[in-house]
């Protein structure tokens, strides 16, 4: 654990790009959580300003079609997109990691079942699945979480399974088994800490995938419903007025792109930091 933390520290203060990614994400996190409490305007008041007003000193990002201050709407959008995606990804990570470890360590029947399960989920295009889910449980945030989970669990299962396969072959695992360790002990004490790195990297990747899925679902009207706003739904509402008031699309679009880019950059940097074996001297 300590090694992990010190690696992360080195990453963030040593690697410029990683640091930028991290700061961006941190900003989004803060905006997301504390957005409603910041003195940046009220997202709900209809008619606070002119309809489709251009950005001005009073309304920094202009106003939308109902005259609402757009800046707080976008901030809310960041929060919703981010929060929703994060919750979904965390649930997925825990379940997916567990299943991946079981598949990779136990082999045999368990492995076949779990691997096939992951393959089936992987075969479904996320958006079709989204339509299905919305039809069954109705559109909204829960629907979005279900779809994101279904789309990202296979990623975890596959990657964790393959990393587990290689860790399980390592000799300290054999030594523990010979000493009488139970399967549970081996998985928790020996395998899990050694696959955390891979899991974290997958987490960042899954996060960016899930933000895209959430936005896509909301853009199609299947995800977050008004008056709640997510970046995707803002894109949807704003797309109608693209030619008249482009900032309605530009603002959430740019923010979404930045957020996804930040997550990916951070993921790359984390991966680089956790692979310190490059450039070792020959002996």
């Amino acid at each position: 654990m300590k090694i992990l933390i010190s690696n992360l520290q080195r990453l963030l203060f040593g690697d410029l790009l990683g640091g930028v990614g991290f700061l961006l994400l941190l900003t989004f996190c803060i905006l997301g959580f504390f957005g409603p409490y910041l003195p940046i305007g009220d997202a709900l008041t209809i008619g606070a300003g002119p309809r489709l007003g251009a950005p001005s000193m009073e309304f920094l990002l202009g106003t939308d079609d109902l005259g609402r201050d757009y800046l707080p709407r976008v901030v809310e959008g960041i929060g919703v997109t981010f929060l929703l995606s994060s919750i979904a990804v965390v649930i997925t990570a825990v379940i997916g990691t567990l299943l991946g470890m079981l598949a990779g360590y136990l082999h045999g029947f368990t492995d076949s079942v779990i691997a096939r399960f992951a393959d089936i989920l992987l075969a479904f295009p996320a958006l079709l699945f989204g339509l299905l889910t919305s039809a069954v449980i109705g559109p909204g945030q829960l629907s979005a979480i279900v779809v994101i989970s279904a789309a990202t669990i296979p990623l975890f299962i596959r990657v964790i399974r393959s990393v587990t396969l290689s860790v399980a072959e390592r000799e300290f695992v054999t030594a523990a088994v010979v000493a009488g360790a139970s399967t549970w002990r081996v998985m928790i004490v020996h395998i899990l800490p050694n696959i955390l790195g891979a899991a974290i990297i997958q987490l960042t990747y899954a996060l960016s995938v899930s933000m895209i899925i959430e936005s896509a679902l909301s853009f199609l009207g299947l995800g977050v419903q008004p008056p709640d706003a997510s970046l995707g739904s803002l894109l949807r509402l704003g797309s109608v007025y693209l030619t008249i008031s482009p900032w309605l699309v530009l603002a959430p679009g740019i923010v979404l792109a930045l957020a996804i880019m930040a997550v990916n950059i951070l993921g790359d940097s984390i991966r680089d930091a956790l692979e310190p074996l490059r450039g070792r001297p020959l002996t």
Binding site: I3, E171, F172, T174, A175, P193, N194
Partner: peptide
């Protein structure tokens, strides 16, 4: 048992 690869004989964590 004592196995071959010193790098992996012990859990690095």
């Amino acid at each position: 048992v004592v196995l071959q690869h010193p790098e992996w004989a012990l859990n690095p964590r």
